[in-house]
Amino acid sequence: MSNSVQTGDFDLTREVAALRTGDPRVGAIAIFVGTVRDFNAAAGVSTMTLEHYPGMTEKALAAIEAEARARWRILDVRIVHRIGELKPLDQIVLVAVTSAHRAEAFAACEFIMDYLKTRAPFWKKEGTATGSRWVEARDADDTAAARWE
């Protein structure tokens, strides 16, 4: 299934239904959803704006999916990543993987997220009433990605 970079929200139920669409080989569906946390617990509006690199983003997600398919016997993958202005509680990203058995689905799903966090060209900017700041990459994400090497 093709992946999507989009401003609009995604419907988890619909996405999963479309992904496994009557395929009787599917015995397992592993799903991850990333959401916007309220980083600004004090008063005031918090926004999270997601920028990406058009042209590279789709290519990077396709490459990450291809790597997952090469490593595990999985049936299908769906990645949806939102861009633009989001707010706390909003969904940001969906990674869904189908396979015959759960081990491959779990592993591939986690792998795809770890690689997306370190290789897919998205950048987050937090905004509050007093200003905005770019989110910094976390060492924990590099460590997580490195363990798949």
Partner: peptide, 24 residues
């Protein structure tokens, strides 16, 4: 495509510089 410092730059290339990514 992500490259490292040793990669060759050629005529017509689009070369993008950016901070470590923070998506997901």
């Amino acid at each position: 495509s992500l490259v490292d410092a040793g990669a060759t730059v050629s005529n017509g290339d689009e070369v993008a510089f950016f901070p470590p990514v923070t998506g997901g």
